[in-house]
């Protein structure tokens, strides 16, 4: 069975490489608002003020990391899954001897990997321009913590995406979910502003939402704000979210399959 997923991964990779220019342009689209945020931050610091407890170089690194990370651990509705359910394409997958979840997981993350390679290149250039440093100030320990967290955050992000996409079993149109998330997520995940500068009450809520574990915490880890004790408690919290969404998605998938009529 693993050979199927490897083959699928290779095939998706080939398809993704055809659209490499599109990937670069798509990431540049995200980079332009980021430029505005960084210019604003530099302007504030040049006036002798400071945003929260952040040093300017750390804030620049945070913003750039958050932009890349939010693309890799993005959550939303995935067009492929929604369409499979809406137009009956799911039939094709259900009669085949593989897991529909893992099939989509592989396609999704292979596409993301290609995208992220281009994103890192563009983000590195942005970092050099804004901070003036050719080598990012990231500790090896932070990279290790980030890698461990990524192993849990990636399935969590996909689980949430899968969960939202299979809502298509119950609703005729799930595009609205995607649109709402596109507006809400940058704000509540810490992509636009670090969550620790929010007013205390809002902050308490936002830092416990799954979106914070996908953008805010991974970016803070890269900037180097965590010791191992804090890190392990963070891992436990992410694992709890993972288990919660695993159960929720399983229930929804089971119920959805029951009402699925296998017609377009």
């Amino acid at each position: 069975m693993s050979s199927y997923y490897i083959g699928l991964g290779k095939q998706t990779l080939k398809q993704a490489m055809v659209y490499r220019t599109n990937f670069i342009l798509s990431f540049l689209v995200i980079l332009i608002p980021l430029t505005g945020e960084l210019l604003l931050a530099k302007f504030v610091y040049a006036n002798g003020y400071q945003i929260g407890t952040w040093q300017l170089n750390n804030l620049i690194l945070y913003y750039i990391s958050a932009t890349v990370v939010s693309e890799f651990f993005a959550i939303g509705t995935w067009w492929d899954i929604g369409n499979d359910i809406k137009y009956g394409g799911l039939n094709y997958h259900l009669i085949r001897p593989y897991s529909y979840f893992w099939h989509n997981f592989v396609s999704y993350y292979v596409l993301k990997l290609v995208y992220i390679v281009f994103a890192i290149i563009v983000a590195y250039i942005a970092m050099v321009i804004f901070s003036g440093n050719f080598i990012p100030n990231i500790y090896p320990l932070s990279l290790l913590q980030f890698a461990i967290l990524a192993l849990i955050a990636a399935p969590l992000a996909f689980l949430i995406t899968f969960f939202l996409s299979i809502l298509a079993f119950f609703f005729t149109d799930i595009d609205f979910i995607s649109k709402m998330l596109g507006i809400l997520l940058p704000f509540i995940s810490g992509n636009i502003l670090p969550l620790d500068i929010f007013p205390a009450t809002i902050q308490k809520v936002l830092i416990k939402l799954p979106s914070a574990y996908l953008v805010y915490y991974p970016s803070c880890i890269l900037v180097g704000n965590y010791d191992w004790k804090e890190f392990f408690s963070l891992i436990i919290e992410v694992l709890l979210w993972l288990i919660f969404f695993w159960i929720l998605t399983s229930i929804l998938w089971f119920r959805g399959r029951k009402i699925y009529e296998a017609i377009g």
Partner: peptide, 17 residues
């Protein structure tokens, strides 16, 4: 959210904007 962005920044840096 666009208005909140500046409100939160303003709460942090005030005249720095």
């Amino acid at each position: 959210f666009a208005l909140l962005f500046y409100q939160i920044l303003y709460l942090n840096v005030g005249k720095g904007l």
